[in-house]
Amino acid sequence: MHPFSYARPTEVTEAVHELAGPARAKFIAGGTNLLDLMKVNVEQPNRLIDINRLPLNTIDELDNGGLRLGALVTNADTAYHPLVEQRYPLLSQAILSAASAQLRNMATNGGNLFQRTRCYYFYDTAMPCNKRQMHHSDQITGTGPAGCGALGGYNRIHAILGTEASDGTVHCIATHPSDMAVALTALDATIHVTGPNGDRTVPIGNLHRLPGSEPQFDHTLRPDELVTAIELPPQGFPDHYTYLKLRDRSSYAFALVSVAVGLEMDGDVVTNARLALGGVAHKPWRKPEAEQLLIGRTATREHFQPVAEALLEGAVGYGHNTFKIDLAKRAIVRALGMAINKEKREEGE
């Protein structure tokens, strides 16, 4: 592990100012991913800015009926918060499907969004990785040859969607590992950000990015910005929702494929639909056109299949992960059925 200095500001402006200071500074909150990455030398910050004392640890009701989740509220406190459980059970379910109780007690909402991919090649500095090697202004990482190790390597957990750069080349097939972000994508959350130039908001769909030819960038925030809160809009789909997560064991494993579904129904007819996929791309995968296919339709299996096909359009397998294309389609169809039918939801996968 690389030596680092440490600061613990109590004000947001102070924290942002700290980050703008010396090179290779990093925010740390729960540290559940950053510390691991530091131990394996993938992250080598010179300075850690501990933001746990910033006043960003409350969940507040908004006038519009929405909810504001402080960036420093833990995943566990968020998932078990009565208002989240009542109005956004999809989010609760997604958070509780992730990691372990111990990790959820430490991990924060802000940190969850910025966890790094679990690609084996990214984690191992002896292996080639474009995400590590294509240098980023706030990190210097890794040795070894550049290139994507997972392409042509062991890619069971890797992406099947959105991997190609605009010129058709593929530089990175990593996935974004967060479950929470998949639910937030289906919920159309808004991310509140602050920085030296003041506050701004980013729709969740624009927070993460596809790898393109710059896989070193996981997200669109500037290096000197800090997430302060996640805003949930009033519509939380409390009646018809599900988070279906498929993985290699029943708990404490990242999703091979996950599906977040929120529906509004008028009798048997779908009036509003949201779908987001996890484990399939460099960001939570959403496609509003696919959702539109459900509007005005009765909620039956024959109407679900075209949605699945539309969401997976253009999917490419890389060998070990090719099964994900079919698995994702089946998961979408199942998840839609579960969202409509409460009994099915409780029966789970």
């Binding site: 084996y120 191992d124 292996m127 190790g149 390597g153 062991y154 064991r249 029943s250 708990s251 494993a253």
Partner: peptide, 25 residues
């Protein structure tokens, strides 16, 4: 233990990715 035979190196060399059953299994 999955090896990338191009490199002769084990790829899932930690307990997050080397899967053994959890209580829920």
């Amino acid at each position: 233990s999955v090896m990338d035979h191009r490199y002769g190196r084990f790829m899932n060399h930690d307990l997050a990715e080397y899967h053994i059953p959890v209580c829920a299994d």
